[in-house]
């Protein structure tokens, strides 16, 4: 619920930022313009804080997901090696027969 609120807040803040821009452009009064510009800059700081918060939280999620995918990549590599283990087993058997032939008397 809090997340949903924060999301709509992001869009709302950007809309407000735009509307302040419209007001600044429309006003002919220098003091009013200065005041609105200050408000727009303050609003930007809030927007920036929010974006930073959202993206930082996502950074952590990406790091966790990448770690899991890296483990999966390692598991697939092991599995590819595992297929070779069957070939290796035949090679080991051949080697064992080589050794056995040396001890089996004729």
């Amino acid at each position: 619920m809090a997340k949903r609120k924060q999301r709509s807040l992001g869009k709302g803040m950007l809309t407000l930022y735009d509307e302040l821009g419209d007001l600044i452009q429309a006003t002919g009064d220098a003091d009013r313009r200065k005041e609105l510009l200050k408000q727009q800059d303050d609003l930007w700081d809030e927007i920036a804080r929010m974006v930073e918060e959202v993206l930082s939280a996502d950074d952590a999620k990406y790091i966790a997901a990448t770690g899991a995918m890296t483990d999966a990549v390692a598991a697939v590599r092991d599995a590819i090696k595992g297929l070779k283990s069957i070939v290796d087993a035949v090679n080991v058997a051949a080697k064992a027969i080589d050794l056995a032939s040396k001890v089996i008397p004729v």
């Binding site: 070939v87 035949v90 090679n91 027969i97």
Partner: peptide, 18 residues
């Protein structure tokens, strides 16, 4: 690789005089 291992296995078997 498997065929190569098989050939090696058969060669080894051939060396067992028994």
């Amino acid at each position: 690789d498997l065929l190569f291992a098989r050939d090696r296995f058969m060669d080894s078997l051939a060396t067992v005089k028994a």
